[in-house]
Amino acid sequence: MNAMPDPSCHTAVPPLAVRDLVHCYEGSNVLTGVNLVLQPGSVLGLIGRNGAGKSTLIRAMLGLLQPLSGTATVFGEPALKLGDASKARLAYVPQQPEALAWLTARQMLDFVGRFYPRWDQGFADRTLERWQIPPNKLLARLSPGERQRVDLIRALASQPELLVLDEPAAALDPVARRELLREIALRAGESGTTVLFSTHIVSDLERVASDVAFLHQGRLLMHCTIDETKERYGRLWLPERIHYAAPTQSLSRRRHDDGSLSLVVERDANGAWPEAANLPGARVDALGLEDLFVEIAE
């Protein structure tokens, strides 16, 4: 199985767990029965198309909205009624953060820092300087990328055990994005921080995530380790004359104009592809995550 961090930092309770989560906005279903458990020390990348319900799922997991039905727990506590102790172990950065725009970056970090017992002011100051953010300018006057970085500093400086990031890289340039990924990766490796982040930039996810979850049309299509995903799934292409041999079990099935067929198939328990892959003319391609995502979500 995949390498897990040191077992000593395992706690019995998962940092995040949801069960049978259902939610809808004005009649249209956003989440239709999601079950997800985040293992301690894992870095889970949540991937899905725009409007797939990623943000809603994250917000429901953290108790920022009341789901229609289902339960969400954070460190074993009901997410909607978190105690101070659990809150201090958790940091969340929303998509395009806009909080406290009437404060300067330094004021905001100063204000928020007073509430966290393990706040690392040194880290906050250093990172503000390293990321070249004017500390005495009102947040309202910073660019979206700068505001996102300030909020990331806010989240990281509280030294959380669980870090939840909603599209953290959306407003960042490639250099800042790489730097953020480095920070996430090292925190996960050294402090055993559990991370959940949503993205639609697949290459980010492939770098740092240990697990990946596909959210499509309000359902979790798959949730497994990232290496396993790459090794286990492939695209089977069958020309028209043998398309009858297509296996019935497949994650997606697409017929092309010339009658040929593309399927996303899975290796069996012994690591073998379905039988049709061995027919003459058939072809199995290994899939990168992005291709796999496109094949499934299309």
């Binding site: 390498a3 480095r182 990766a185 090292l186 490796g189 050294e190 770098r207 240990s210």
Partner: peptide
Amino acid sequence: REVAGFHAINPMTVSR
């Protein structure tokens, strides 16, 4: 740590 930091990848991947 060096490999993970340099390439911004998960340290677990490197140790694996």
